[in-house]
């Protein structure tokens, strides 16, 4: 394919993926906005008002970046894992496999679709958050870069999950048993400085911590870990997962007999 044909194919995938989650927005965009509103009301409003400030911020304000990023992560992942798995399950993945699209392009298209959903949901949650607190942005470039890279990382993760999945149960195992614990323990609701020594060190093994920390820096100028470390780690993960996804499609794992 020529570069302009590749561009057309990429756009096709992106538009298709966006139309898919927009068509079913009640299942894809609305739940995150509702759930995250509950977090704001309960943890921020009711419980948070009883708590001391964290790193000089009101508790409600402190948890906003983490909650937005949590929604972004979940949705980027969920979009690709369910879309790609259902393409396998209904076999319309064959529409792509018979076409001359190279594998990296399929990966890129699905990833972009997941990123789009992450961004749309992120925006929705931000709008909700703005209703509860005064939002501030310390550094736009950092905010934008963190959100883009994080959605990319988890969209790729969702794709790899879908490649290996054989049933609908398999696409909820990783979100339930890996993703949710990692985000909850990734400094969304607390600063790791508040943890005892051992748990502080253990938290540093959690990649989500680095993303939440960098995102919080972008919004509020405070971070648990240095910014450069966060970016190096996220970019490293993105590169590895992209290569893995392309390799899996190339080998036909889960898609070609």
């Amino acid at each position: 394919m020529t570069p302009s044909q590749q561009a057309a194919a990429f756009l096709t995938l992106l538009i298709k993926e966006c139309l898919r989650f927009i068509r079913i927005w009640v299942q894809t965009v609305l739940p995150a906005a509702v759930t995250m509103s509950l977090y704001f009301v309960i943890f921020g409003g009711l419980i948070g008002s009883q708590l001391a400030d964290v790193k000089g911020l009101r508790y409600m304000d402190y948890i906003v970046p983490g909650i937005i990023l949590m929604a972004v992560i979940n949705n980027a992942y969920a979009n690709v894992v369910s879309s790609f798995f259902s393409a396998k399950f209904q076999r319309h993945i064959e529409e792509m496999l018979v076409s001359p699209m190279p594998n990296w392009l399929i990966v890129a298209g699905y990833t972009a679709g997941g990123m789009a959903r992450g961004l749309v949901v992120g925006l929705a949650v931000t709008v909700v958050a703005a209703w509860f607190t005064d939002l501030q942005v310390h550094s736009w470039p950092v905010v934008v870069a963190v959100v883009l890279l994080t959605t990319m990382l988890f969209a790729l993760g969702g794709l790899i999950n879908a490649v290996f999945a054989r049933s609908f149960d398999d696409i909820s195992i990783i979100p339930t048993f890996v993703l949710t614990p990692l985000t909850y323990l990734g400094g969304v609701f607390y600063s790791i400085d508040m943890l005892p020594g051992f748990w502080q060190q253990a938290s540093r093994l959690n990649p989500v911590l680095y993303m939440v920390s960098a995102f919080r820096y972008g919004m509020q100028g405070v971070a648990d870990v240095p910014l450069a470390v966060s970016f190096a780690l996220i970019i490293g993960f993105v590169v590895i997962l992209f290569a893995a996804a392309v390799w899996l499609l190339h080998r036909g794992v889960g898609v070609r007999s």
């Binding site: 057309a8 096709t12 538009i15 001359p100």
Partner: peptide, 15 residues
């Protein structure tokens, strides 16, 4: 219609 248009897209034909 989307199904057919998308298939064209996979072959590099713009919308």
């Amino acid at each position: 219609e989307e199904i057919v248009i998308n298939q064209a897209g996979y072959y590099g034909i713009p919308r």
